[in-house]
């Protein structure tokens, strides 16, 4: 089985966000970057599927600056066979990113192309599905349960208050959600061998895109909370506040 995984480098989820001088992007000073957590599920799925098939190849693609090499090496250390860096400053426009990835992935002859369901920086939730459309492949998003039998894909996705069962056949695009698996950690041996695995870099050009960032700001701080009281005796007052002041019950 030949499997591609698209991996984005994103700020660590615990990073403190400071708005940069341009007022449109974050100040990256001192921010630790990690593989997008949802993409780790995609990496694990790729590795497990290849192991099950016994043969095949896994390739990781990342679009971004040269610092993405480090992110790609993390995937190689987990066990992915080789990496491709598409050098570009990136774009807030998901369709531009999807076009660049699709142009690269289309010729790859992949049975399966995996994405995270969304990147935890831009929260766009769109690139994987768009690549599916651009390549004319079946696409299933936010998959929390996956089984592949021959060329038949059976996926489960969580919808409001229920689970949707979706089927398609390979080749296909899948975007992964939490619940699908537990990503492995890179082993020491993996980290050593990752250094020798092939990592190709090539520049790609993105268009201007249809969406532009007009500004980035910090969310308004919530009003400093009020401690109603201590222990169960505070309940009466809490209920009165919820009813008369907040008017939510």
């Amino acid at each position: 089985m030949k499997i591609a995984v698209c991996l984005k480098r994103v700020p660590d989820t615990t990073a403190k966000i400071v708005v940069g001088e341009d007022g449109k992007s974050i100040d990256e000073t001192g921010v630790k970057f990690v593989p997008n957590p949802y993409d780790e599920y995609a990496l694990e799925a790729a590795l497990a599927l290849k192991e099950k098939a016994g043969t095949g190849e896994t390739v990781v693609y990342s679009l971004g600056g040269d610092s993405c090499q480090e992110t790609i090496r993390t995937a190689l250390a987990m066990g992915i066979d080789r990496g491709v860096l598409l050098q570009s400053p990136g774009s807030p426009d998901g369709f531009e990113v999807a076009q660049a990835l699709a142009a690269e992935l289309g010729a790859g002859g992949f049975d399966l192309i995996l994405f995270g369901k969304m990147a935890v920086d831009d929260y766009n939730h769109q690139v994987g599905l768009m690549v599916g459309e651009l390549l004319g492949l079946p696409a299933i998003s936010a998959v929390s349960g996956l089984s592949i039998d021959g060329a038949t894909v059976r996926a489960e996705r969580e919808i409001e208050g229920a689970v949707e069962v979706v089927t398609c056949s390979l080749p296909a695009v899948i975007t992964t959600d939490k619940g699908i698996n537990t990503p492995r950690l890179p082993s020491l041996k993996g980290i050593m061998s990752a250094k020798k695995k092939p990592l190709e870099s090539k520049p790609v050009a993105l268009g201007a895109g249809a969406v532009t960032v007009a500004g980035l700001s910090l969310p308004p701080e919530r009003q400093a909370g009020r401690i109603v009281g201590e222990g169960p005796d505070a309940v009466t007052q809490l209920v009165a506040l919820l009813r008369n002041e907040a008017k939510v019950i």
Partner: peptide, 24 residues
């Protein structure tokens, strides 16, 4: 709507119309 269905459907439509979408 940025529901399970809307999040799945909107990027498909956007790609067919060759444009991006603003999610959530």
């Amino acid at each position: 709507t940025a529901s399970a269905t809307g999040r799945d459907l909107s990027p498909r439509v956007a790609a067919k119309l060759k444009t991006a979408c603003a999610t959530d």
